[in-house]
């Protein structure tokens, strides 16, 4: 907590020009400039959108796998296939994705060999693209297995197999059992972790750095870019973005846990 508070204090002072090699003292100019340029807002909207889509698809797919194949998912081979992506670092997954989805990658070559495309330019942009397809695919592949394991665990602990049998015995159809029992029981137990994963993805760095486009960029990438500028007068703007991002994430986390403790209490 102390190092975090110290780093935050340092960033805050830097953002107001109180410290910094080329700064001359307190000013609101850096904050005004960040708001004027709109870079923070663009990056925030871009990051929130990517994190939301990734979490939504991951959670939906993991729920489907869990409810549909919960018995098969406990098999040795399938378990191994779930655990494996968890052991692959994001940066490695991003490089794999470049090898597979780039214009000169594996899929592009197959597509050329099969006659679907006549050259590199015909293959669609799946990485460094405006829709962040590459980023979202990698985030899903990294996050979804975790959710499958989490949901399987809740499935067992909450005795969902018995609860679904009970619901059927009380007259619930398959879809009523899913919507009124399985989903509420699982999501009620896991929504905090899902929200935390959303916050975690909001700050993703390596994956969007490798697979993202030039502009807009995800928040972490934007912050590091600003902090490493050759123009030293711009560094303070990087700290402004970092401070705003930290405040936003801290507020979200506090709200999350205060709501959780209210529910538990």
């Amino acid at each position: 907590m102390v190092p975090f508070a110290a780093a935050f204090g340092y960033s805050l002072l830097y953002s107001f020009g109180i410290i910094g090699v080329v700064n001359d003292g307190f000013t609101l100019e850096f904050w005004a400039e960040v708001f004027r340029s709109g870079a923070f807002l663009d990056a925030l909207i871009y990051s929130v959108t990517i994190a939301l889509i990734s979490v939504f698809i991951s959670v939906t797919a993991a729920l489907w796998f869990t409810l549909k194949f919960q018995k098969k998912l406990r098999g040795k081979i399938v378990s191994f296939m779930i655990y494996l992506p968890l052991a692959i670092p994001g940066i490695v997954a991003a490089f794999f994705t470049v090898q597979i989805l780039s214009k000169s990658g594996l899929f592009s070559r197959f597509s050329y060999l099969l006659g679907f495309t006549s050259g590199i330019t015909d293959f669609p942009d799946l990485i460094n693209d405006q829709y962040a397809i590459g980023i979202i695919l990698v985030l899903i592949s990294v996050v979804m297995p975790f959710f499958v394991l989490l949901f399987l665990n809740v499935y067992d602990n909450e005795r969902l197999d018995q609860l679904t049998e009970l619901a059927r015995s009380l007259g619930a159809s398959n879809s009523q059992t899913i919507w009124r029992v399985s989903l509420p029981v699982i999501l009620r137990k896991t929504w905090t972790l899902i929200a935390l994963y959303f916050i975690f993805l909001l700050g993703a760095y390596e994956v969007p750095l490798i697979l993202g486009q030039e502009s807009p960029q995800m928040l972490s990438v934007l912050i590091v870019r600003e902090l490493k500028q050759f123009d030293l007068t711009k560094i303070s703007e990087g700290y402004v973005v970092a401070v705003m991002y930290t405040i936003l994430v801290s507020i979200a986390t506090i709200l999350l846990f205060s709501k959780r403790s209210t529910e538990n209490g």
Partner: peptide
């Protein structure tokens, strides 16, 4: 006939309630 349409209710050994 499937379980949900039999109008037969099975009551478990445990006091199994919907936790949510």
């Amino acid at each position: 006939i499937e379980a949900s349409k039999r109008n037969i209710v099975y009551l478990y050994q445990e006091d199994l309630l919907f936790p949510h």
